[in-house]
Every structure is written in structure tokens, then in C-alpha cells.
């Protein structure tokens, strides 16, 4: 099933996409963690690839990336593990990677390999839409969706262009800032999410800063769901799985009216 369909055809509540850092706690943990999150009801899983210079991320995800790098984790190894895990889970996988590891792997080989591993989509936070057009001009992405980010600072004209060509889902960044745990979101956020959702051909998921059930409810009502990163990474690292399960349960009870 295509990623956008998987998100739209969820059985209940609002979509919930947990982010995990591949290789945090060792690569042997990867498939079991995906299985656990799937059992908890995750709609899709965003799988972070560690990078030495994660400028879009806050301290929690950066630290998780450093732990993974200290284990020697590479993009190629993560893809190998996904192939080995084929058949053990059916939740869609979205890779979140900075551009350089992809560039080094080779853009075309990366998409071939990612598709072969069953990866549904890819988020590249330092590859804006315009650069992606040029970089992917000669690339066959083998059905792997390139998921665009839209922020509160994106101009109306750029949002229009980005939405017109969006695949998988639109990642609506909730903050002017990096990933982390936020207590308050900008006033204009809900209106922004509603406008995006009304206009977007694919689902809109809100991410950055989300960590409370109440935030999941408010944001989940305004768009198609949420992406939760730092909170999940921290909770899994510290063995607080029950808190992750509770947040996912909260998403299931959101009244989406759509």
C-alpha cells in the first residue's frame, strides 16, 4: 500500500508516526523496536539515519545519533537490517536522513536499495524542494516517496508548489526551531495546519516538539496526524516503553471528523 493510503486508511484516531534513531542501542535492536512500535499501533515509522552534523535536530536526537555513530552504524548497514527483517513487520518505513550519507551512497543506488528494502518514503531535512528537483532530475526513485517539509516560514508561493508535487505525506514543521520537546506552539500553527490539510493532495502530519497527549489531540484534530521524535527516542533509550504506548493510545482516541 502506498504511504499516503496507509495513513488515510488507518482504522482509528489520528495518525501517529514515531521517530527512532537507527542503531541507537545497537543495530540488533532495530527490527525488535519496529515490531514493538507496530504492536503499539504506530501508523508508520520514521527511521533516522545517524549523521555527524544534524543541523535540523535538537540535543536529544543529536545525542542518539552520536550513540549510533559510536557503534559504527551506517546507512548501508541499516538498509541491510531492513532487508533481513522483511516479513517481520508490515508498518510502512520512512527514512529520515541528511543528504550527505545519501550523496555518498549514490543517489540512484540509494533509491534502488531503499525500494528493495521496502522503504516507503524518505525525508531529507537539508534538501529543500528546489534542490530536490535538480538532484532527482535523472533519478528513478522506484516508488519511494520524497516527503517534503513545510514550515511556518515557507512562503505561500513555495507552499503551493511543494503541495502540488507532494508524495507520501507533507511534514508540517510546527516550530521555528529544531526537533525537541516544546511546551507551546506558535499561535498561527493550528490555522496553518488546517489550511495545509484542506489544500494538500496527500496527508499532512505535524512534527517537531510534540510530546504530550494533549498536543497529539490538538494537532491531530487540525491535520492528519503527528510525528513524535525526541520524546520517543528518549523514552526508548531510558526503557520507558509504557509512556510511548500511552501516547500512541492517545492518538487512537482523537476525534478526526474526517
Amino acid at each position: 500500500m502506498r504511504l499516503d493510503e496507509a495513513i488515510r486508511e488507518r482504522s482509528e484516531g489520528t495518525a501517529f508516526v514515531p521517530y527512532i534513531m537507527a542503531g541507537d542501542g545497537g543495530l540488533d535492536n532495530l527490527i525488535p523496536t519496529i515490531e514493538r512500535l507496530e504492536a503499539m499501533g504506530a501508523t508508520a515509522i520514521e527511521l533516522g539515519i545517524p549523521f555527524s552534523d544534524p543541523v535540523a535536530d535538537g540535543p536529544v536526537i543529536e545525542a542518539a545519533g552520536m550513540r549510533a555513530l559510536a557503534e559504527g552504524v551506517t546507512l548501508a548497514q541499516v538498509l541491510d537490517r531492513l532487508i533481513e527483517g522483511t516479513g517481520r513487520f508490515s508498518v510502512p518505513i520512512v527514512l529520515m536522513t541528511y543528504l550527505n550519507p545519501v550523496f555518498r551512497f549514490g543517489v540512484q543506488p540509494f533509491f534502488e536499495r531503499a525500494a528493495a528494502c521496502g522503504v516507503s518514503g524518505v525525508i531529507i531535512p537539508d534538501l529543500p524542494f528546489e534542490e530536490s528537483l535538480e538532484l532527482f532530475a535523472e533519478t528513478d526513485r522506484h516508488g519511494v516517496a520524497f516527503i517534503p517539509l513545510v514550515t511556518l516560514t515557507s512562503s505561500a508561493q513555495r507552499v503551493e508548489t511543494i503541495l502540488n508535487q507532494a508524495e507520501g505525506f507533507v511534514y508540517a514543521v510546527t516550530l521555528k526551531g529544531t526537533t525537541g520537546k516544546a511546551d507551546v506552539f506558535p499561535d498561527e500553527l493550528l490555522g496553518h495546519l488546517q489550511a495545509l490539510t484542506a489544500r494538500s493532495p496527500v496527508p499532512v502530519l505535524a512534527g517537531f516538539g510534540v510530546h504530550l497527549a494533549e498536543q497529539v489531540r490538538v494537532l491531530g484534530e487540525a491535520c492528519d496526524g503527528v510525528v513524535v521524535g525526541s520524546f520517543i527516542v528518549e523514552a526508548l533509550h531510558e526503557g520507558r516503553d509504557e509512556e510511548v504506548a500511552a501516547l500512541i493510545r492517545a492518538a487512537k482516541t482523537v476525534d478526526t471528523k474526517r
Binding site: P128, E131, L149, R158
Partner: peptide, 13 residues
């Protein structure tokens, strides 16, 4: 090029 987070695109432009 401009290989930057989306939040900065507006400022850079």
C-alpha cells in the same frame, strides 16, 4: 546551492 532546512529558505531568499 542551498542545502538547508526549509525553515531557513525564506531568510536565505
Amino acid at each position: 546551492g542551498k542545502y538547508i532546512p526549509e525553515t531557513l529558505m525564506q531568510a536565505v531568499e
